[in-house]
Write a protein that binds this DNA or RNA. Sequence first.
DNA 1: TTCTCCCTAAGACGTAATGTCTGAGTTTAG
DNA 2: CTAAACTCAGACATTACGTCTTAGGGAGAA
Lengths: 133, 133
Amino acid sequence: MARPTQDVTDAELQVLQALWDRSRATIRDLTEALYPDEGTSGYATVQKLLERLEQKDCVVRDRSEGPPHWFQATVNRDALIGRRLQAVAESLCGGSLVPLLSHLVQQSQPLSASDRKTLESLIARLEQERDQP
Amino acid sequence: MARPTQDVTDAELQVLQALWDRSRATIRDLTEALYPDEGTSGYATVQKLLERLEQKDCVVRDRSEGPPHWFQATVNRDALIGRRLQAVAESLCGGSLVPLLSHLVQQSQPLSASDRKTLESLIARLEQERDQP
DNA sequence: TTCTCCCTAAGACGTAATGTCTGAGTTTAG
DNA sequence: CTAAACTCAGACATTACGTCTTAGGGAGAA
């Protein structure tokens, strides 16, 4: 039975973000990035967070090049966004993503110029798709 | 200092959903809806969940009509959607909602006919707004 | 060969959140 | 007066979380 997709905690996300900034990294690499002045305790914290991310299928560990092990993220930012949006949809909207989309489009907060440009290009693309059944 | 907006737990959400289905309710009403065969322990669970929802400013308690107290939700489904979307944006996108919108529009899962119609009317509305600077 | 450093593995720890449950006191209706 | 309903407050067990310690292995340098 497939394990339910799981969320990640804030500290785990910090680790993932550091992995997204590199194609792969060692525990030492991540510790230097995230816990620069913490010595062995920072190292162990990163170890524990990577262990939990492994269990959540969010990273893979490559032992083949001997110590140190190398780690890569197996989930990217967009996939996490998707998981979290799906979780909101399942929790509040019976699984439908449309209320989320509706909410985002109708929000009262004005968009920045660059955000609006991104949205306009998305709308144009969607209309293009709509005109080709 | 304003309390940071808080999320609600699954059990708290069950209580809110029962309140959304009624304009207002008593603890007994909610217990009969959510914990129909649990006796005093179900009653106490609803009490505790309402207490925590009060602390999170998600419900108000009206004591003015004497026992029993009456409860109303002060947050609706759309407001909770907004809070959760904002939390996803802050956690993964530096606060910007556009990546969430982009993700929702680009998802590969086909929309149902009614969902697509909703989306089309939203796009039309947005374009209308765009043509009126 | 020994020592030091780096690394892995495993668990402990304290705190907070969560859902559930018990007990005591108050109020109201019969 | 009694019983039922209600309120108030806390206890409890479990889980999650971030941090930290300890022990052992491996490799390189002295």
